[in-house]
Design a binder for these strands. Sequence first.
DNA 1: GTCTATAATTTGATAGAC
DNA 2: GTCTATCAAATTATAGAC
Lengths: 204, 204
Amino acid sequence: MVNKKDTTAEQKILTAAKKVFTMNGMAGARMQDIADEAGINKAMLHYYFKDKDKLFEVIFMAEAAKFFPKVNIIFESDMPLFEKINRFVNEYIDEIAENPYLPWFILNELNRDADQFMSKVWNMAHRPKPEKFLAQIEKEVKKGTIKRISPLHLLINLLSMTIFPFIARPMLMRTMQMDELQFREMIEQRRKEIPKFIIDSIKK
Amino acid sequence: MVNKKDTTAEQKILTAAKKVFTMNGMAGARMQDIADEAGINKAMLHYYFKDKDKLFEVIFMAEAAKFFPKVNIIFESDMPLFEKINRFVNEYIDEIAENPYLPWFILNELNRDADQFMSKVWNMAHRPKPEKFLAQIEKEVKKGTIKRISPLHLLINLLSMTIFPFIARPMLMRTMQMDELQFREMIEQRRKEIPKFIIDSIKK
DNA sequence: GTCTATAATTTGATAGAC
DNA sequence: GTCTATCAAATTATAGAC
């Protein structure tokens, strides 16, 4: 199933590999499956990307490199806290709508081989940088504009509520007996539910 | 690294296989690694469990079978809502302390091959049953004892905040520059932080 | 039951024609 | 650049001695 935008073989491979890698992980992905998905020959994968490790690295680095900076722009901006939380939730959901398997992909490989991942991808430019966000929470607590709360736990709560539903999608869909459309509706609702839930909890 | 409790070869294999499968997933696990971990021979794995698929299924079903009922006992009990939330968080963290890779294990295989998992493991006895919990929230909202909130989103928030940190452990440890001990301390704090955060958000 | 040695299979990688 | 055919390596599975 080749995307209409993918003209060159190289681009077809990248699109196919991204799909197969994200759905099966590095170990589970088959070069043959990537070739089939791209509608080309297996030998072509090696012609363009040398070997499986290299192909994986190209995909993985590109995805992480696109993703984390977007989050960091929000975390490091000068917006008020509540607006920042709102923006984070919405931008994250926007991003995942285009790359449904991305969070899974990143966490999966981080769990599998954290050290290798760090050395190749998690460099200065591409890692999450929450320091400013944490300091901002601390400041608001001290000013007394929000309740006393641990900045770390607030950040983890925000990340958890935003990211987890995408990772646990199959479990949630089955447990709650949701179909594809209902799942998407649930996610859309969370654009407002998550900020509201957080703000209700910490506002004075 | 054989556990002192594991006397028989079969038990050694089960313990070793659980560890290797949960750390590497089905596709990434190597039969040789399981044999080494168990301190026995590779042929023994096949003698006791026929093949890799069968061994995986035995482990996986056993873990899921133990885990979900514990959660369900809480969800289906007659405790007051706030107490139920508190108990869920604490029992879940207790459980994961003994099986750190279990949530990852379950979600990983659910993402990889949901249909097969469902047919073999997710049967009547072993699936999560949140219906009573959802109804209880609905009832409290109608009584006016808590704020108006979607029961579904409250449940997802609870699951997210409790489970996500374990799944995202490598990312959190690296991003927040935590060592093993600091991570465990953070988790311990969440026993109180999560219920407090939720209750602050929904209490009137 | 447990082992060593080996077969069988899967899968990644390459050679060589076009 | 692209393909078919084939090789090489990794990995699962089994045969057979003890």
